[in-house]
């Protein structure tokens, strides 16, 4: 299977096509509902962001607590469409890729095409299996949000399927 490493610059992702399967290695950041809300507020205020969005990969994930002796707990994807309201803004600020589960709205697909991003899905409901791909994990922002904090994860061969490619092509068809 094709392998790909972060950072995901335009050259690495522009040839990816919806439906393609990949293994991703490198740095990804977890962020879900409340972290998105805070990132969007910070962007609107012109405040400094806790992560560099340029070419970044955001993983819609809120892991369980870390068991003793493990890198991270169970860490599968959460429903992506809940982040749709914030996604075009993040893409405009340089975000390159998102990992989650399920469909995206029309505005997100348009923004992915406009800013040349990519949306991946990964095995949904398989948090224990995906935990095996995480080699390092560190909370880097919004620690008060608990499971919704932003974590920096170093992953190895994290399984992905391209769900929306940089031309707006979707694995789920036109709807």
């Amino acid at each position: 299977m094709k392998k790909i490493n972060t950072p995901l610059d335009l050259n690495k992702i522009k040839s990816l096509k919806a439906g393609e399967e990949l293994l991703l290695s490198g740095v990804i950041y977890t962020a879900r509902d409340q972290a998105h809300k805070r990132l969007a507020e910070a962007i609107k205020k012109g405040a400094r962001l806790p992560i560099e969005l340029k070419d970044a990969v955001i993983y819609y994930c809120g892991p369980t607590q870390r068991p003793k002796g493990k890198v991270l707990g169970s860490c599968g994807p959460t429903t992506s469409s809940r982040m749709d309201a914030f996604t075009p803004l993040l893409l405009a600020k340089g975000l390159r890729a998102m990992i989650g589960k399920g469909k995206r709205g029309q505005e997100v697909k348009s923004a992915i095409r406009k800013y040349k991003g990519v949306y991946f899905v990964t095995y949904a409901g398989c948090g224990a299996l995906l935990a095996g791909c995480v080699k390092k994990a560190k909370t880097i922002a919004y620690g008060d949000l608990g499971p919704e904090a932003i974590l920096k994860l170093e992953v190895k061969d994290f399984p992905l399927i391209v769900a929306v490619d940089s031309t707006g092509g979707s694995i789920y068809g036109k709807d």
């Binding site: 809120g62 169970s74 860490c75 409901g125 948090g127 224990a128 935990a131 499971p147």
Partner: peptide, 19 residues
Amino acid sequence: AILDNAAIAAKEKLAICQD
């Protein structure tokens, strides 16, 4: 993957799903 996940969860004492 879903079946493997269940086996890993049981063996590693990890939640089947993070939710």
